[in-house]
Write a protein that binds this DNA or RNA. Structure first.
Length: 741
DNA sequence: TTCCCCGATCTTTTT
DNA sequence: GATCGGGGAA
């Protein structure tokens, strides 16, 4: 008998993971062991071997990206389209289920999915009667508390009074209840509700549960270590079938669990055998990605964690010999960025592709130093993360306009745009509108109509609101006749929204207009406006821009699941990595999660990993001494090479004294600076800044980031410059060079 | 109502 | 250093 083509070139463990189709199965897949391949091949195998029809398999991922990748690979293996499959993110699949059974939780099938801005606006209204001290208890924090409850599958009734002790003076639970009631009135859901409501339905409606038990013969779960409690409950409800086997296959890696702060429970994966009796466990330990040195370093580090399921990565290739992992110690964070860029420049000269190089940082604030330095070196880069397309203010505004267009009763959207552009509607007018809406038992939109017939609005705002309402009416009829692209363009134009950005002198205004154009372009890919809005609320990312050869700069969290030939890991210092805050809040558990994050970072590299740490770091405005990360001491000596004079933590603690060399020395060969008194260093730094040449008004100058410009206002330190490209900005004069024109 | 200045704050992030 | 939100003045 010959091996079917989709099962060729798999190692024995991978084959076991794919061919064990019946009964519960946990696949512990270490980094780089072919996890996605196993997952997709398993899916294809179940189909090709005739175990199930395409729609009888439930396949769940966390991100849209992972879902998309699975779709592509499955259709590659089976040659079939993947339309209609139950394959998607937890939230997308739950949204689909909830649309079918919405009435069981008091919604209709056309319920609205709220984004974070909507949630906050709603919460603000709801929390108002409690008169919460917003300074002590900021609303985003309150929203976080509610979200954590939802992550744990707790409805307002399920939260015990004991759990509601601290936040918002013990009112969080009551506010949560009101918040949920308001959502129901609005026929709306937040992200947490998508899961929570479906679990609620599956628990209380045996007939519905039965229906899904018959439907889903096989369940596949990706990144099981990242599941939170509701997601776990959802899976358990669907997988445990009366009198039938639980054909659930969860793939994950307890060593890569890095999302506990947003509700993920590593315990879910650790408990798998108890939850599903008779479960088999397959370990994928052969790593085909990284060199033996990189794997050895990562393994040595992660061995310091307790309570692991136990798994050792082994090099999958015999020839996987490479360079040791390099640890570089550096003066300060500026020199660190310079050092990384210099190495990248050398690599580029040697013919390495920039797209195969990544700089992975612990926290967002670290990216800026690298960004500035990369610009200076002329190295193309891309920052991954940050604000995503659909999170930009102008995009959210435009989406709110669209939402009101399709649904005049969408109060949250209407409230967002009623005064954007300015129409003279402030808090006072808005309160009147809310009051009117309550008495009418109708939406804000109709309240505006009513109040327009009275003299409720003063002068200009009367006129502007009337015109806004007319625009909506007009474009709704255009929507019917000429389609959504024309209607939305007309709406954004006639409402004055585009005009607002055209008249804006801010340097980023043209970019925002460009984004809006892009948004309208994207509209054309969808049949209706409703379809587009559903897509946007579940898929927060815009379809990828063209892949170019650029260095990637991103957080360690953002890098999970990716791989690069070369990886730079800067900022391995106590307080930064491991992060002080995680240590304070999470104790030993927090430390272990940080260590897993370090493990994730190292295992992203195929051939080269360079870890850096600086003796002094500029955090926000001031310089801080920093000690090398404890993780550096945990890396096994046989696989690493230390460059620069790298004192251990203990040596460093014993040391005291003043530095003699210039801290701005470019030479990485100079002896390591001993601990520097903060005062002294800051003084030197200030001196350098103040000794920068005084720049006169009218002088033509050059700035690394903003380009050429003319000084219009000069002060000590801060200088106002009109840049040719970037508009008017206040910048540090020490960053300016005068240019003779 | 809006604009401007001042002070407090400053993980990680997907859906 | 930059940004965001609050509070005060026009």
């Amino acid at each position: 008998m010959t091996t079917p083509s989709h099962l060729e070139r798999l190692n024995p463990e991978q084959r076991a993971a794919i061919e064990t189709t019946e009964g519960p199965l946990l696949v512990l897949a270490g980094a780089g062991t072919g996890k996605t391949r196993v997952l997709t091949t398993r899916f294809a195998h179940i189909l090709l071997s005739g175990h199930a029809k395409p729609w009888q398999i439930l396949a769940v991922t966390f991100t849209n990206k992972a879902a998309r990748e699975m779709r592509e690979r499955i259709s590659g293996l089976t040659g079939e389209t993947t339309d209609g499959l139950w394959l998607g993110t937890f939230h997308a699949l739950c949204a689909r289920m909830l649309r079918r059974h919405a009435e069981y939780v008091g919604l209709t099938s056309s319920f609205l999915i709220l984004d974070t801005d909507d949630q906050l606006r709603l919460l603000k209204q709801v929390a108002e009667p409690w008169r919460i001290d917003i300074k002590r208890w900021p609303l985003p924090g309150l929203l976080g508390v509610i979200q954590r409850w939802k992550d744990r599958g707790l409805t307002p009734d399920g939260v015990t009074p004991a759990e509601d002790s601290s936040y918002a003076d013990g009112h969080a639970r009551a506010i949560y209840g009101t918040y949920q009631a308001r959502l129901r009135e609005l026929n709306a859901c937040d992200f947490g509700d998508l899961m929570l409501h479906v679990v609620d339905i599956l628990r209380t409606r045996p007939d519905v549960l039965e229906q899904y038990h018959r439907l889903f013969r096989y369940i596949l779960v990706d990144e099981y270590q990242d599941t939170n409690t509701v997601q776990y409950l959802w899976l358990r409800l669907l997988a445990r079938r009366e009198g039938m086997p639980s054909n659930i296959c969860c793939v994950g890696d307890d060593d890569q669990s890095i999302y506990s702060w947003r509700g993920a429970e590593v315990e879910n994966i650790l408990r798998f055998e108890k939850d599903f009796p008779g479960a088999r466990i397959v370990r994928l330990e052969r790593n085909y990605r990284s060199t033996a040195q990189i794997l050895g370093t990562a393994a040595g580090l992660i061995a310091h964690n307790d309570g692991r399921l136990g798994k050792t990565l082994r090099p999958g290739r015999e020839d996987a010999q490479g360079e040791p992992v390099l640890i570089v110690s550096i003066w300060d964070s500026d020199a660190e960025a310079r050092e990384v860029c210099r190495r990248i420049e050398t690599m580029r000269r040697d013919g390495h592709a920039l797209g195969e190089i990544a700089i992975l940082v612990r926290a967002g604030f670290q990216t800026r130093a690298f960004e500035e330095r990369l610009v200076q070196f002329g190295i193309p880069y891309r920052i991954i993360g940050g604000l995503r397309f659909y999170e930009r203010a102008e995009i959210r505004d435009a989406l709110a306009y669209m939402r009101v267009l399709v649904n005049p009763a969408d109060d949250l959207a209407f409230e967002r745009i009623i005064n954007v552009p300015k129409r003279g509607v402030g808090t006072a007018a808005l309160q009147k509108l809310h009051a009117q809406a309550r008495t009418e038992r109708n939406g804000l939109s109709s309240a505006v109509e009513t109040l327009l017939t009275t003299a409720a609005f003063r002068g200009k705002s009367q006129e502007k609101l009337a015109s806004l309402m007319q625009t909506f009416v007009k474009q709704r009829s255009v929507l019917g006749r000429e389609g959504h692209v024309v209607a939305v363009s007309g709406l954004l134009e006639d409402s004055g929204y585009l005009e607002m950005w055209r008249n804006d002198n801010a340097p980023d205004a043209p970019g925002r207009l460009e984004n809006l154009k892009e948004l309208v372009r994207a509209l054309a890919d969808f049949g209706t406006l409703g379809e587009f809005l559903e897509h946007v609320s579940l898929v927060m990312e815009a379809e990828g821009a063209a892949e170019e050869d650029r260095v990637s700069v991103m957080t360690l969290h953002g890098a999970k699941g990716l791989e690069f030939d070369s990886v730079f890991l800067p900022g391995w210092e106590e307080g930064v990595f491991p992060s002080q805050r995680t240590l304070d809040e999470g104790g030993d558990k927090g430390l272990e999660e940080e260590r897993r994050l370090a493990y994730v970072g190292i295992t992203r590299a195929r051939h080269r990993a360079v870890i850096l740490h600086a003796a002094s770091r500029r955090i926000y405005a001031n310089w801080q001494e920093s000690m090398p990360s404890r993780f550096l001491d945990e890396l096994p000596d046989e696989y690493v090479e230390r460059e620069g004079d790298t004192p251990t933590r203990r040596e460093r603690q014993d040391y005291s004294g003043y530095f003699t060399d210039s801290i701005f020395s470019d030479s990485q060969n100079s002896t390591m600076a001993p601990l520097v008194a903060k005062k002294r260093r800051t003084a030197v730094h200030d001196e350098l800044v103040s000794s920068a040449p005084q720049i006169e008004v009218g002088a033509r100058v050059f700035h690394q980031k903003f380009g050429y410009g003319v000084v219009i206002n000069a002060d000590r330190g801060a200088t106002e410059v009109v840049f040719e490209e970037a508009g008017t900005r206040r910048v540090m004069s020490s960053y300016l060079q005068t240019v003779t024109s």
